[in-house]
Write a protein that binds this DNA or RNA. Structure first.
Length: 230
DNA sequence: CGAGTTTGACCAGCGC
DNA sequence: GCGCTGGTCAAACTCG
């Protein structure tokens, strides 16, 4: 990265359309606080077989996910963190593959998925999973206005305003309740950060049909009610 | 040479 | 139970 200029260039290509929040995995939530994240990146000592690093009989507990759509020419958006690609898969019903990235920082378990909308190839859907345990390397180095969505714990309205392309969705109350029940500070922070943007969202109108369609994959259906998408 | 990418294989979960 | 799909691993490869 070459600091602000390059990043501005990247940012200028982007027009964030929509940001959605993904919380909990309804069917996969499991009360097993010991296993917060199955694989710690960098620790390969336990690998026995390909794809078999996970303990048998235990469902992986997923971190809350946080996704947003970005209109961008590039698949992998610069967000201030360093990512390492660890996989790519063809996506059902889409000619575009989904790429899997992991934060290269040791002990940081954050992952992200990047895929392109098959209905609007100019739209990139990025899904973050987990929370960075460190600061953005770029931030540390002084590039303070890189896009850096993952540190959700630090997300607050000013973040979105700085990166004015970001817009939060209208969260369904049920989802909020679910998360509160889980006493998840991370989500609570997220929810708090979201609230002020529910109003903004109304100004932006609703997502077109095809955008919503592709979001169904990653947005719980409970969004439907309040989002009132066409 | 180290860091990152590509790619095929593998496993787990889920729906039928 | 079986097949499909998503997610991950890791060897091979590329690049600076």
């Amino acid at each position: 990265m070459n600091g602000d200029d390059g990043d501005d260039d990247d940012a200028s290509k982007m027009q964030l359309l929509k940001k959605i929040n993904i919380v909990g995995e309804p069917q996969q939530l499991k009360n097993d606080p010991d296993e917060v994240e199955g694989d710690n990146c960098g620790d390969k000592s336990n690998k026995v077989k390909k794809g078999a690093a996970r303990k048998k009989g235990e469902k992986r507990q997923r971190e809350p996910r946080f996704a947003f759509m970005t209109k961008s020419e590039v698949d992998h958006l610069e967000d201030g963190y360093r990512w390492r690609k660890y996989g790519q898969k063809a996506v059902k019903n889409s000619p575009y593959p989904r790429s899997y990235y992991r934060c290269t920082t040791q002990k940081c378990t954050v992952k992200k998925r990047v895929e392109r909308s098959y209905q609007d190839p100019s739209i990139v859907i990025t899904t973050y999973e987990g929370q960075h345990t460190h600061q953005s390397p770029a931030t540390v180095r002084g590039s303070s206005h890189l896009l850096a969505p993952p540190p959700l714990s630090s997300m607050h309205p000013s973040f979105h305003q700085e990166h004015h392309h970001l817009l939060m969705p209208h969260l369904h109350p049920q989802l909020i309740n679910i998360n509160n029940n889980n006493s998840n500070n991370y989500l609570q922070n997220l929810i708090q950060s979201i609230s002020p943007f529910q109003q903004q969202q109304q100004h932006l109108g609703q997502l077109p049909d095809h955008h919503y369609g592709l979001l169904q994959d990653i947005v719980p259906s409970t969004f439907n009610d309040d989002n009132q998408l066409p």
